[in-house]
């Protein structure tokens, strides 16, 4: 057949057929049930491994043991003591740190002098692990609540500064010019144009700084803390009580989830206009 030259006459017309579809894929769909299912599946496998002895008790406690430790903590009433101690420190350190961060970030965004003077300082101090400064904090703020709150304060201050001035920089200059063209006062422009414009960036900065604050909780509670989720985890580690360790980690990560949920809610409320 192939040796035959194509017929000089018009080639045979193929029968009409539909255009093939080529546009599929590359379009992630939300599959709400899969996430929890994977989670449950993993924990189930873990429990099974522990029950059958594939995972040694020395290496990793069974999820049921961790749950029992959590339950014991709840029954003994210490759960609230630990949680309230930690939450108080978080609330103090994080909110003061974020507030100061927004103020400093705003002044960097608005004033050339502040930008020139503070940006290098912030860049130099931000990457220092606050844990390394703990001995200094102890000398400055004592071994009481002061050094713990200070650790969380500095942990949340720097990311907020950077997020805020980044947000201010990203505010549409056209909107500011509009404000000026309508003779709005400087304060009105800052309050009604710059701040709301920077709010999305500030809120995502808050997300990060809250996570950092939770991470630093364990470090902060290394010093002279009797109660606190971080102190509980440290003690569990010291005692090689892995079930309590896992229970403490679960507490920490639920704190993270709750904070993320609250900030998400705040975002939905404050950034309603974006949707």
């Amino acid at each position: 057949m192939s040796e035959q030259p194509p017929s000089p006459a018009s080639p045979p017309r193929p029968t009409p057929h539909p255009v093939p579809f080529r546009g599929g894929g590359f379009n992630p769909r939300p599959l709400g049930i899969v996430g929890p299912l994977v989670f449950v599946g993993l924990i189930g496998l873990w429990e099974l491994g522990s029950q059958t002895g594939v995972i040694g008790a020395l290496f990793l406690p069974a999820p049921s043991e961790a749950f029992a430790a959590l339950n014991e903590l709840f029954q003994s009433g210490f759960l609230w003591k630990h949680l309230s101690a930690s939450l108080q420190r978080l609330a103090m350190g994080w909110s003061l740190g974020s507030l100061a961060g927004v103020l400093v970030g705003l002044s960097i965004g608005l004033f050339s002098l502040a930008r020139a003077g503070l940006v290098p300082v912030v860049s130099a101090l931000f990457p220092i692990p606050k844990i390394a400064l703990l001995p200094l904090f102890i000398i400055w703020f004592g071994i009481g609540e002061g050094s713990k709150v200070a650790t969380l304060f500095f942990g949340s201050f720097f990311p907020t500064v950077i997020a805020t001035y980044g947000g201010v920089d990203a505010v549409d200059r056209g909107l500011i010019r509009m404000g000026q063209s309508f003779n709005l006062s400087w304060l009105s422009i800052v309050r009604k144009i710059v701040l709301p414009g920077a709010l999305p960036a500030i809120l995502s900065g808050c997300r990060i700084s809250a996570s950092i604050a939770i991470i630093l909780l364990v470090a902060a509670e290394m010093i002279g803390a009797e109660f606190g989720v971080g102190a509980y985890i440290l003690l569990a580690g010291n005692l090689m009580a892995m079930d309590q360790l896992i229970a403490g980690v679960v507490l920490l990560s639920s704190m993270g989830l709750i904070v993320a949920f609250l900030i998400g809610k705040a975002e939905r409320r404050l950034l309603r206009w974006r949707r």
Partner: peptide
């Protein structure tokens, strides 16, 4: 009791 983690501290 004041747990301070390290002898130096």
């Amino acid at each position: 009791l004041k747990p301070l983690q390290k002898v130096g501290a």
